[in-house]
Amino acid sequence: MNILLIGEYSRLHNSLKEGLMQNGHRVQLAGFGDGFKDYPMDLKFEKKWDRGFLKKVKVLIHKITGFDMSSYLIYRHFYKNRTFFSGYDAVQLINENSFYCGYHYERKILEHIFRNNKKVFLLSCGADYANVTYCFKNPGFKSVVQPYLAGKIKKKDFQPVLKFREEEYQKLHEYVYDNISGVIASDLDYHVPLEANPKYLGIIPNPVNLEKLKQNTENPRGKIVIFLGINHQNYFQKGIDFFEKALVEIEKKYHDRIEIIVTRSLPYKDYITAYHRAHIILDQAYSMDQGYNALEAMAKGKVVFTGAEKIFETFYNLTEKVAINALPDTDYIVSQLAFLIENPDEIKAIGKRASAFIKANHDHIDIANQYARAWQ
Rank of each mutant, 00 (worst) to 15 (best):
I180G: 06
A30I: 04
K47V: 04
S181N: 13
K302R: 07
M69G: 01
M21C: 07
I74V: 14
G7F: 00
E106L: 01
I365S: 13
K348H: 05
H104L: 13
F114T: 07
L201K: 08
G222K: 11
R115W: 02
L162D: 00
S98E: 13
F84Y: 13
E309K: 05
H232Y: 15
P198K: 02
K137I: 09
S335Q: 14
K171E: 07
L110F: 07
L194F: 01
K47C: 05
N131G: 04
Y254P: 04
H191L: 03
N206I: 02
V322G: 10
K80A: 06
I272E: 15
Y235S: 08
L282V: 13
F164N: 00
F243P: 07
A150L: 12
K119H: 07
D289H: 11
H364K: 10
Y292M: 15
Y254T: 02
K80Q: 13
Q28H: 07
G202H: 02
P139W: 09
F53I: 15
E167Q: 06
F357G: 11
D363N: 15
I180P: 06
L16T: 03
L20T: 04
L188C: 06
C101P: 02
D157I: 01
F312Y: 15
I153D: 08
Y105H: 13
P207G: 03
A30S: 10
Y286E: 09
S355G: 06
S71P: 05
L29F: 04
S70E: 13
N95R: 09
D68Q: 03
H232A: 11
I109F: 04
G291E: 13
I311Q: 08
E259V: 09
N95D: 12
L327M: 12
I180Y: 06
I347S: 02
Y88N: 03
L188M: 08
R165C: 02
E251P: 00
Y105E: 14
K142R: 15
T133R: 12
E111T: 08
I113H: 02
T330E: 14
Q284V: 12
F78C: 03
I153N: 06
Y9M: 08
I347Q: 03
V225C: 10
N219M: 06
P344W: 02
G87I: 06
F227C: 13
L93K: 00
A196V: 01
Y254G: 04
D68E: 09
A360H: 11
K245C: 07
N369S: 14
E174G: 00
G35A: 11
S143N: 12
V322S: 09
S186G: 12
Y148G: 12
C101R: 02
I204K: 01
G19R: 04
L340E: 04
N219V: 07
Y200E: 01
D89R: 07
Y275L: 15
T273G: 10
N361F: 14
N197H: 14
A349V: 03
N206W: 01
I203K: 01
E166S: 05
H276G: 15
Q159F: 07
